[in-house]
Design a binder for these strands. Structure first.
Length: 419
RNA sequence: GUGACUGUAGCUCAGGCGGUUAGAGCGACGGGUUGUGGUCCCGUAGGCCGGGGGUUCAAGUCCCCUCAGUCACCCCA
């Protein structure tokens, strides 16, 4: 690759710079606040794990079979970059055995080797939660409520919630067989893709191929095969959502991409988003995963929500503008001594946001910079006033200015800001 | 991974069928007299026209390859 192409962010990755990065900070802060209110603690797990941890996502899933960034380290270990948030968190649960239910949230990057386009990147960030160690349907409702409320906090209105139940192991076993029979009966339509259907019969259900839609519409539905307990569990989740006034649609063909899902699965779609990448968050139950990783039997549920896509949805709906990081006070230096450095230090130490223009600018340019920085006040260090122990304090909004004792200026502005 | 479209200054874009020193707006920087911003006026910098190869007397304009972005499939956040 040419040197010119090497010194730029790799395909499918991006830099997030100010002021856009301020929106990230805002989004994460709101999620953290909400997670804390729901009783979830922050969990931080490695960005890479042993390959086998992520392989539990499912050998028949694209994420594992063709999108994993795996590699051998210098010690010959087979490792992989995290492709999604749940597996590593469950590994940590199985390893440390915290008391259940264990409720945690995270913000972390995920890596998938995919063909990038808007809203789909090789490195993307997710906020998410996992609640491990309870099979109570009320937890399902709590988790969905948390994510639903998060989107509302951001100001998103055009968000749609889809829910479905994958049933228990027996349910899925029976359904898989029925579904597979159905696909085999339509081998002429599926063609070479029948092999994929054999691998994972449910994967076909969420295909968008136009000439398959008719066949998919008529396919047997999982809901008809739910066992008594599964149906009751799903009913209780729906009752809870209705009680909270959270509107949702039952999506019989929503199966989601990971093999570990059991019972409740859900997805939030941003309707304001134009393209095919309209899933902004999704998750579900994974009642067997902790046990498969050597932990105690621990039914669990969680979700992940993609930061880039949520932000795209915010753009599409015109909400969550980048918070302006305006400074409180700007120092104008007309004397060129170390005094400006000292004054800035004092202002910052009393808790003010303070800044100055790049060195060597004319006084005029410095005032201009103060204005562009959105400063509320300017403090000028000037020869004449300094001689009598004063500095010039100017209100940038009104243009009024007055002299203030040099030693009193920091406290004076701090007081002004409070009022 | 498959198919299609796009790629000109930091940003948004002009550059009729190839023809000399590639333009605009915004932004940045400087100036409009001694120490005062937002408006206005003037000026300056900044482009191997994504990269490489080819056709041609001549390529930002045509062809091929490549890189990247975008759209769809696949899949998902």
């Amino acid at each position: 690759m040419a040197e010119r192409d090497v010194f730029r962010a790799p395909k499918g990755t991006r830099d997030v710079l100010p002021p856009e990065s301020a929106r990230w900070g805002e989004l994460v802060a709101r999620f953290a606040d909400r997670a804390a209110r729901f009783g979830y603690g922050l969990v931080v797990t490695p960005i890479f794990e042993h390959y086998e941890v992520f392989a539990r996502v499912g050998e028949s899933t694209d994420v594992v079979s063709k999108e994993m960034y795996d590699f051998l380290d210098k010690g010959g270990r087979r490792l992989a970059l995290r492709p999604e948030g749940t597996a590593g968190t469950v590994r940590a649960f199985a390893q440390h055995r915290p008391t259940a239910p264990w409720k945690v949230w995270y913000v972390a990057p995920n890596f998938r080797y995919e063909q990038p386009q808007e809203g789909r990147y090789r490195q993307h960030w997710q906020v998410g939660v996992e609640a491990i160690g309870s099979d109570d349907p009320d937890i399902d409702v709590e988790v969905i409520d948390l994510l639903h409320g998060f989107y509302r906090d951001l100001g998103l209105r055009q968000v749609r919630l889809l829910v479905n139940s994958m049933g228990d192991a027996d349910t899925r076993e029976r359904y898989r067989a029925v579904l597979l029979d159905y696909w085999r009966a339509h081998a002429d339509v599926l063609g070479a893709e029948l092999a994929r259907a054999e691998q994972n019969p449910m994967r076909i259900l969420d295909s968008k191929l136009p000439h398959w839609q008719d066949m998919i519409e008529r396919a047997p539905q999982l809901a008809e095969h739910l066992s008594e307990p599964s149906a009751a569990q799903f009913e209780q989740v729906q009752t809870g959502l209705r009680a909270l006034g959270i509107s949702f649609e039952i999506a019989p063909r929503l199966v989601r991409g990971f093999d570990y899902y059991t019972a409740t699965v859900f997805e939030f779609q941003g309707d304001a988003l134009g393209g095919a990448q309209n899933a902004i968050g999704g998750g579900g139950r994974y009642d067997r995963l902790a046990e498969e990783m050597g932990g105690p039997p621990s039914p669990a549920i969680g979700f992940g929500s993609g930061i880039e896509r949520v932000l795209l949805a915010c753009d599409a709906e015109g909400v969550l503008p980048a918070p302006a990081d305006r400074v409180d006070v700007f120092v104008i230096d007309a004397v060129g001594t170390v005094d400006a450095v000292v004054l800035l230090h004092e202002l910052r130490e009393v808790g003010l946001r303070a800044d100055r223009a790049a060195a060597g600018r004319s006084v005029k340019k410095q005032w201009g910079a103060a204005d562009r920085a959105g400063a509320r006040w300017g403090v000028m260090l000037a020869p004449t006033e300094l001689e009598s122990g004063h500095v010039v304090l100017k209100d940038l909004a009104t243009g009024e200015q007055l002299e203030v004792r040099r030693e009193a200026i920091a406290a004076r502005i701090a007081t002004l800001r409070e009022s």
